[in-house]
Amino acid sequence: MTDQPRPAAGPAQRVLLGIAFMCLAGLLFPVMSSFAKILGADYSSLQVSWARAFGHILFLLAVFLPRYGLGVLRTRRPGTQVLRSCMLFTSNLCHFFAITFIPIAKAAAISLTAPLIVALLAWPMLGERTTPGRIAALGLGFLGVLIVIRPGTALFHWASLLVVGSATCYAIYQILTRRVAGLDSPETSAIFSSVIGAFGMLLVLPFSWITPQGLFDLALFCGMGVLGAVGHWCVAKALGLAPANIISPFQYFQLLGSVAVGWLVFGDWPDAGIWIGAAVIVSAGLWIGWSQTRKTRAG
């Protein structure tokens, strides 16, 4: 009796699988951020960002080259892949520098704007049309950001603005990932996502380099690369399975992971303003995702 080919997963199953990959990424990134915050006390953000990118490249090459060969390095959109890499490196650099000054949970709450920015840019960059209701939800989400940042008060910290910049770059990274998802494999996109950070930074790294001070620090540097590599492969996989404006809101699992890591490792617990602002941002993002899913089902 011959084996029959397995039927391809239907649209609903692909969306659910994409959501699962995005949730997994949202659990890995807070742990990576905790490593970066610990290292940021003794090393420059440039070195920390480079180590994350370089470790990312080495780990993925070790995993993918034996299985896929050099073909995994071929891309049909090299320019888009390089731009993706630039956006991700800038996002990481801004984020890692910011969390040396503010708690991880606060940075994570501000970072929740990335899905909202994806929804805002999905129309001009991907042709995924929006509606007045979604625009209103975007406005509500950015109001939540103001609640978290609280500009003009004693609780405001300028590093919060770096996280806004990080979220914007990460949103563009996700949009570009979606654009290459049908042309390059998730494995190819995962490798290229850190090319600029791993190799471009070699030009300036000697000016800020500090040799790791012990095996613990070295393990943290290496761990960032592995966690970042697996996390961004999950993001690339998720965005290849379902539309960006459906998948992106499920990054919100990252907030729960960030709160847990911040409390367990650093003793930081978010105040009421961060919880309220985060709830507003999450509500706006989930409404956008729900409305898009309802439209997809109706179509």
Score class of each variant (00 low, 15 high):
Cys94Pro: 03
Val259Lys: 09
Ile102Lys: 07
Arg6Lys: 13
Leu264Ser: 04
Glu187Ser: 12
Asp3Ala: 12
Val204Asp: 03
Ala272Val: 13
Gly139Thr: 05
Gly289Cys: 03
Met224Cys: 02
Phe21Gln: 09
Tyr173Met: 07
Tyr252Val: 03
Ser33Asp: 15
His56Met: 08
Ala278Cys: 09
Leu183His: 14
Trp50Asn: 09
His95Gln: 14
Leu27Ser: 13
Phe253Lys: 03
Phe54Trp: 15
Ala229Arg: 00
Ile276Pro: 04
Ile99Met: 02
Ala229Asn: 00
Gln47Asp: 07
Ala279Asn: 05
Ala137Phe: 08
Pro5Ser: 01
Leu126Glu: 04
Thr188Trp: 13
Ala278Ile: 09
Ile175Pro: 04
Ala119Met: 07
Leu121Thr: 05
Ala114Ser: 10
Gly127His: 05
Pro124His: 06
Gln47Gly: 12
Gln4Leu: 10
Pro186Ser: 04
Asp271Cys: 01
Leu46Thr: 15
Tyr43Asn: 11
Phe199Trp: 14
Ala105Gly: 08
Thr75Gln: 14
Ile104Leu: 15
Leu60Arg: 13
Ala154Ile: 06
Thr293Val: 10
Leu162Asp: 05
Gly285Phe: 03
Ala9Trp: 12
Val145Gly: 00
Leu28Arg: 06
Asp271Met: 00
Gln81Gly: 12
Leu16Cys: 01
Pro66Val: 04
Phe64Lys: 06
Cys94Phe: 15
Gly197Lys: 09
Ile196Cys: 11
Leu17Lys: 11
Tyr173Ile: 04
Ser193Leu: 07
Leu162Glu: 06
Thr168Phe: 15
Phe29Lys: 09
Ala244Tyr: 03
Thr100Arg: 08
Asp3Gly: 05
Ala242Met: 06
Ser45Asp: 14
Ala8Pro: 08
Ile147Phe: 10
Ala219Thr: 13
Asp217Met: 01
Ala171Val: 01
Ile274Gly: 00
Ala238Trp: 00
Val148Tyr: 05
Ala284Asp: 02
Ser208Trp: 14
Phe101Tyr: 15
Gly71Val: 11
Phe253Pro: 00
Met125Phe: 15
Ala53Leu: 09
Glu187Leu: 12
Ala136Gln: 06
Ile276Ser: 12
Gly240Thr: 01
Thr293Ile: 03
Arg67Leu: 07
Met87Arg: 01
Asp217Gly: 00
Asp217His: 12
Phe59Cys: 15
Leu112Pro: 07
Ile281Trp: 02
Pro103Leu: 03
Ser193Asp: 02
Gly55Thr: 10
Arg129Lys: 12
Asp42Ser: 11
Leu138Tyr: 02
Ala62Ser: 14
Ala62Lys: 13
Ser193Tyr: 06
Met201Phe: 13
Ser185Ala: 15
Leu93Cys: 13
Asn245Gln: 12
Ala105Arg: 09
Gln4Ala: 07
Pro151Phe: 02
Pro103Cys: 04
Ile104Trp: 05
Met22Asn: 09
Leu126Arg: 08
Gly214Asp: 05
Val63Trp: 10
Asp42Tyr: 06
Phe156Val: 04
Ile102Met: 15
Val259Gly: 04
Tyr68Ala: 15
Val230Lys: 01
Arg74Thr: 13
Arg84Ala: 09
Trp287Lys: 13
Leu93Glu: 10
Ala114Pro: 01
Ile117Phe: 11
Phe142Met: 03
Ser160Ile: 03
Ser44Ile: 09
Arg76Glu: 11
Trp263Gln: 07
Thr131Phe: 00
Leu255Phe: 10
Pro186Phe: 01
Leu140Asp: 04
Ala105Glu: 12
Phe216Ser: 11
Leu220Asp: 01
Gly26Phe: 04
Leu73Asp: 09
Gly214Cys: 04
